[in-house]
Nucleic acid binder design. Structure first.
Lengths: 203, 203
DNA sequence: TGTACATCAGTGAACGCGCGTTCACTGATGTAC
DNA sequence: TGTACATCAGTGAACGCGCGTTCACTGATGTAC
């Protein structure tokens, strides 16, 4: 028996590797083609496993997709958090608080640009992402709370104001990304207008 | 030869009927299930024609879908225009102008509620809907121009302000309709907040 | 008004495709005694 | 430390499905003379 003929694959894949691999493959598919591109068979091909092997780890295709969506949403939140953390200035400092809010909007729009597939996927399957802070909405709320602490935002206006603000940013991302405004020559300008509109409204 | 056996269909369908029927069928499919539900074969089934007959009228499925999207977008614009027209008061009257702007937002959000499938379809295939006025953006621009005429909106702030405003309304529709905020107990409240945010920012 | 012919808008049959999913199986790994 | 057995995570083969699309056809309608 010759040894060199083929990889002996004497060892099986480490436990949990295939599942994680399928999710990772799904994320790559989503990155390229959005939620519809998360095709179960294609994910198994990437991992190098037979199609039905996926059913050892997921009840069906939707369960895989849901996992991929969660990863995409977490990725968005992580990038936002990273950009927020990059802003210097003590918590409660008015200028810093405003810059942190700006960073939130900018990071959100940037993610929509750079990863349109993941962005679409993050919002494709609406599931409870929990109400923890490491969520786009959680990060926004925190920034708005800081604006109140800093005395920039009137506490009376605070309640519920995260929704219109999220809507502006999200609407801008969607309209310029996949919507009727995509490919407009002044996309950058439109985004700037939206962020300025927010800043203008809060002061 | 007996006559009563079957409808003799001695007459063909009137010219153009099948094409219009396919579009109408596509619209109904979109109404129920969004853009993905616009299935060429299903449309031909509804019309009562063999599947490939569709190729006498459309190059392919995408061409049918594009037509359906246009109809959906026009439907949105029509409903907005109807609600605007329902607001009384002369053009240029400050209060009337503000109410007309409000009617735009309300109609937009209502359409998203009542016809989620058509709403999604309208924005599924971004094509040039022309720059005429009978378009959501065109109607919004007109309302903002009137606000300037009425002296409510500072002319200096007018340029490009349609984009942030459209974004708020669209973002609210998407987030509460298909997005993470759908099924929230206070969807109505969120929408009210968004519209109030706009009104508040313009005065 | 009648005839010859081109065009148009359907029919009938079939294609290849890739998908999600199910079934019975097998062999390695972990566990109990 | 060794053996018996259950469990786990893969394989191999196949399924039915519905889709978009192509091909050759046919018969009614419109047009030219």
């Amino acid at each position: 028996v010759s040894i060199g003929e083929e990889a002996p694959r004497s060892r099986r894949r480490p436990r949990g590797d295939v599942r994680a691999g399928l999710v990772a493959a799904g994320v790559e598919l989503a990155r390229t083609g959005g939620p519809d591109a998360v095709v179960l068979r294609e994910a198994t091909r990437i991992v190098g496993v037979v199609p039905n092997a996926a059913y050892r780890h997921f009840a069906d295709r939707d369960e895989l997709l849901a996992e991929v969506c969660t990863v995409a949403m977490n990725e968005l939140a992580d990038r936002m958090a990273a950009d927020i953390a990059r802003v210097r200035g003590k918590r409660g400092n008015p200028a810093a608080a405003q810059r942190r809010l700006g960073a939130i909007g900018t990071a959100y729009l940037r993610f929509a640009h750079e990863e349109p597939g993941l962005f679409a996927t993050a919002f494709a399957v609406p599931q409870q992402h929990g109400y923890n802070e490491r969520t786009p909405l959680g990060l926004l709320r925190d920034a708005l709370d800081e604006l109140v602490e800093a005395g920039v935002l009137d506490p009376q206006r605070r309640e519920g104001i995260e929704y219109p603000i999220w809507s502006i940013v999200h609407g801008t991302a969607v309209l310029t990304g996949q919507g009727p405004l995509r490919g407009a020559p002044d996309v950058r300008q439109i985004e700037t207008l939206s962020l300025a509109f927010i800043a203008n409204s809060l002061t």
